[in-house]
Amino acid sequence: MLQEKLYNYLLHLGDNSMILGQRLGELCGHGPELETDIALTNISLDLFGQVRNYFQAAAQLKGGDATEDSIAMLRYEHEYRNTYLVEQPNEDFAHVIARQFFFDVYHQLVLRELMKSKNETLVAIANKSIKEVDYHVDFSSTWIKRLGDGTEVSHAKMQTAVDTLWRYSMELFKATDTEIWAAESGVGADLDKLKPIYLERVSALLEEATLQLPENTVFQYGAKTGMHSENMGFILAEFQYMQRAYPNMKW
């Protein structure tokens, strides 16, 4: 029972990084300039590195034939625990940055909590990942400022991206049963506690970037419990392609 809960918590943690890493991977070679291209690929690489750590731990808990790859690639759509936010497409560079920033600030807060987890594996993964994610926050925050306070065109595009994606942000903090268990047992982060800090950080940075959070947002919830957006099927079609088309082989 305990193992199953921990396993599910690892899926929550890993799936967000994995789907966001996959989205960033689509951009490789298509960035607005070489340096940015390298940085986005690097973030994708960091995220997948973290996913491997989470899912190697998950595979051990699950036992049997489970591997990091079977956990990553052989679940059905409704079994993925990532949020709507990370499924959102690479509409333009402003959307890429807004999605990244909304996730990075959350990710950093969660990892800082996991560094104090009662579970040693999570502590180890968090200690390693936090250095990477501190850089991710730096990268996306800097770009939010550049685009928000850059030209009129970039300001408008950045504001549109914020308006579009903000509705998916609060799902990060709506705890599922698994996340409630994780917080109560001292294994995972207490999302209620982190939410006001998140709101404060995001608002402050957007203000600095001359951007505004939309008012009267109707937030979207559901992906974390398996009800994904139409994007998810296409993401998985590519992501799972080889494992589905050529099952039970070694690569």
Partner: peptide, 24 residues
């Protein structure tokens, strides 16, 4: 880059991402 989203395993994905990044 055409194969980054479709690697058969996570290990291969990380290696391919790193390789394309090296090329950049």
């Amino acid at each position: 880059g055409n194969w980054i989203t479709r690697t058969p395993t996570l290990r291969r994905k990380v290696a391919l991402l790193a390789k394309v990044q090296d090329e950049a």
